[in-house]
Amino acid sequence: MNKKDWPLWEIFIRSKNGLNHKHVGSLHAADAQMAIENARDVYCRRNEGVSIWVVLSSQIVASDPDEADALYEPAKNKIYRHPTFYEIPKEVGHM
């Protein structure tokens, strides 16, 4: 990237109170304040948000897909963590 180009920012929007901020995409801006304003104009033209987070894309640290097996497989065989693992008689009602 040319030094004169605006850096890339990842944009996260909370669509309404009570919900998480959700990643919606990215955009370019010279600074954080501008990134927020650009996000408002680019990603909230139709009332999509009540709160905006912006993060420099270069600051995001992501897990490596090659480690997916090591990272996520072990969770798959712990089915006892899920409620459907347990059998409760119908008569007991919802639990």
Binding site: W6, L27, H28, A29, E37, N38, D41, V42, R45
Partner: peptide, 11 residues
């Protein structure tokens, strides 16, 4: 001058 600002000004 850049897409983001095009959008901002039009708003």
């Amino acid at each position: 001058p850049i897409l983001e600002q095009d959008i901002a000004l039009i708003n």
